[in-house]
Structure formats: structure tokens, C-alpha cells
């Protein structure tokens, strides 16, 4: 139940009373170390970057599910993937750089604990982003590899010979429900002029793959794609993308390994709020005890020094007297 409005109006009504007494000696706000201000700003920036990266991955996922690696250009996917990759490496290095700041001696213990927790949170938020990015890149890689294989087969062929596997590949992209179960790689010969007469039996045109008749291969692939089936340029682009993807995957694995070490260190042994708090209190009590002990030790030492000095003084005095 939100009561903010009601409460604030109560506060202002009290303040507007003529004889209302305000705090006579307002305390000055504590001075904030500049390094902590920078840490705070950067941690917030990183948090925003994480949000953006998560959004981009969402977009990358949709794009991946919509685009076909055979017929569509991989350019937009490449752009977004490389942008996410640079974001992630930027985030990762930023986290490392602000982590280095947490060894600042100017900061109070609470600031240090807070900063450590912030870094822990940022790392934890990065982990799912990293793993979903990894999944996306893997998916893209497998698709590209498949596309490359198919292209290779198409390139090897001369004329309108189409292998069953290629036909299957095309179908699995367009009509997954029509993919045949056998995996023989025999070339299927069919009339390059494509019969218009539906009554003629034709292995590609008719019911060997499904019940309903479907489009001609030209229609299936799109005229522009079928004529120069897959251009050399696109093939080059694909292989570069594939190389980049492999590199990216390696980098992600590396990042994961680094993060894994970090997260393992941060794993809670016991996940209970009040137990941890009580524990902290006990620790605090213990440290206070130790401080007390140290203080009393210090006092005792001082006492002893005074005693020794006194003895020396008396001895000196006695010697002085004796010498006289």
C-alpha cells in the first residue's frame, strides 16, 4: 500500500506550522571520496550497458530465428553479433577496471563492501548475457556450416542436377514438414524444363516428399537466388562470418572460464539472510572485543613504560645521591 503522497503532505503540513521547531544544528553531509563517485557512476553505466546488451541479444535471437542462412545475407546478423561482442568485452574490461578501484584505502569499510557487492552483481548479470550470446553464436555457426556444405555441393554440380540432400536442405529451410527420411545422396535427375503437366510422374514435383503439390524449384528458392544460385560474394562473406564466429566462441569460453573462477569464489556457503547478519554481528562483536583487548594492552604497555622510567629515575637519583 503506497502512502508516499499522504506522508509527504503530512510532512509539509508540519513544516508550514509557524511554531514548528526544526533541527537547530544540521549536520554537514559526509565528504565523498572522488574515487567513490567515479566508481558509482561507472558501475551505473555498466549496469545500463548490461541492459542494452540484453536487449540486443533479444533482437539477435529474433533475427536468427527469422533469417535463413542460405537465402539471406548474413550482414545484419554479423553487425549485431560483433556489436554485442564488443559490448560484452567492453563490459567485462570495465568491470575489471572498477574492481581494481575497490582496493582504495580512502574508502570506509561499508563502501568497500558495497563496491564488492556491486561487482558481484554486475558479474552475475553478465553471466546469463554471456551464455545466451554463446548459444546464439553457436546456433549461427551450425547454420552457417550447414549452408556452406550445401553451397559446396551446389558449386560442385553442373547444370540443373540437384542432389537429394540439397533438395532436402532447401526443404528443411522452407518446408521442414516435407523433409524426406532417407539420406541417400544419389543425384536426382529431373527434366530441366519442368513439366507443367501435373499428371506426369515426377519425383521432385510430387508426392514422394509430401501429399500436396508444391512450387517449382525456381519459386521455391526465389528467381534471383536460383539463377546465380549463391553468389561467390555471399560465400566469401559467409566464410568470414564463420571464422569470426569461431573466434568469438573461443573468446566467450575464455571469459566464462575467468568468470567461473570469480563466481565460485563468491558462492555463498549458507544462503540465509538473518544467519549472515547475525554472523556479521558476531564478527563485529569479536572485532570490537579485539579492539578493546588491544587498547587495554596498549594501556598496560604505557603503564609499564612509566613504571620502568620511574625505576630508572629513582636509580639515577640514588646513584646521584650516593655519588655526592
Amino acid at each position: 500500500m503506497d502512502r508516499t503522497r499522504e506522508f509527504l503532505s503530512l510532512v509539509s503540513s508540519f513544516q508550514s506550522q509557524p511554531n514548528f521547531v526544526r533541527d537547530p544544528a544540521p549536520q554537514t553531509p559526509p565528504t565523498i571520496p572522488q574515487s567513490f563517485v567515479t566508481f558509482d557512476q561507472r558501475s551505473k553505466q555498466i549496469n545500463k550497458m548490461l541492459q542494452t546488451a540484453a536487449q540486443k541479444i533479444g533482437y539477435y535471437k529474433t533475427l536468427l530465428s527469422q533469417k535463413s542462412s542460405i537465402t539471406d545475407s548474413t550482414q545484419s546478423l554479423d553487425t549485431i553479433s560483433s556489436s554485442i561482442k564488443s559490448d560484452i568485452s567492453m563490459i567485462s574490461s570495465s568491470i575489471k577496471s572498477i574492481d581494481a578501484q575497490t582496493k582504495n584505502k580512502e574508502w570506509s569499510p561499508i563502501m568497500l563492501n558495497h563496491a564488492k557487492a556491486v561487482i558481484q552483481i554486475l558479474n552475475k548479470r553478465l553471466t546469463p548475457i554471456l551464455s545466451s550470446f554463446q548459444e546464439c553464436v553457436k546456433k549461427q555457426t551450425t547454420e552457417l556450416q550447414r549452408a556452406q556444405e550445401r553451397t559446396q555441393e551446389v558449386m560442385d554440380m553442373s547444370g540443373p542436377k540437384v542432389t537429394r540432400r540439397r533438395a532436402k536442405g532447401i526443404l528443411s529451410d522452407r518446408r521442414p514438414d516435407l523433409v524426406p527420411q532417407d539420406s541417400s545422396d544419389e543425384p536426382i535427375q529431373f527434366n530441366p524444363t519442368y513439366p507443367t503437366n501435373q499428371n506426369q510422374p515426377n519425383v521432385f514435383m510430387h508426392n514422394s516428399f509430401g501429399d500436396e503439390p508444391f512450387q517449382t524449384p525456381e519459386e521455391l528458392l526465389g528467381a534471383s537466388d536460383f539463377q546465380p544460385l549463391i553468389t561467390e560474394r555471399r560465400e566469401q562473406q559467409r566464410s568470414t562470418t564463420l571464422q569470426t564466429a569461431h573466434r568469438t566462441l573461443n573468446e566467450i569460453s575464455q571469459m566464462f572460464q575467468n568468470m567461473g573462477r570469480l563466481l565460485a569464489q563468491q558462492r555463498d556457503n549458507l544462503q540465509l539472510i538473518d544467519y549472515n547478519l547475525d554472523h556479521a554481528n558476531v564478527n563485529m562483536d569479536m572485532s570490537i572485543d579485539q579492539l578493546e583487548k588491544a587498547r587495554s594492552k596498549q594501556k598496560n604497555r604505557r603503564k609499564r613504560i612509566i613504571q620502568i622510567l620511574l625505576v630508572i629515575f629513582v636509580v639515577v637519583l640514588l646513584i646521584g645521591l650516593l655519588v655526592r
Partner: peptide
């Protein structure tokens, strides 16, 4: 209801007792 890890997920960096000795944590 929450483990310290889950509190972290929601951006809670630290949790403290109101009656404990607390020092300032600016910008938070």
C-alpha cells in the same frame, strides 16, 4: 523468502540491522 544471492539480483548490495553501528554510504 530471499537468499543473499537473490537480494543481489534485485540490486541490494548490503543488508544491515537498523540498531547496528552504521557508517554513511553515499550515492546509494
Amino acid at each position: 523468502l530471499f537468499t543473499p544471492n537473490q537480494l543481489h539480483q534485485h540490486g541490494v548490495t548490503l543488508f544491515v540491522d537498523i540498531d547496528s553501528l552504521r557508517s554513511p554510504l553515499p550515492l546509494t
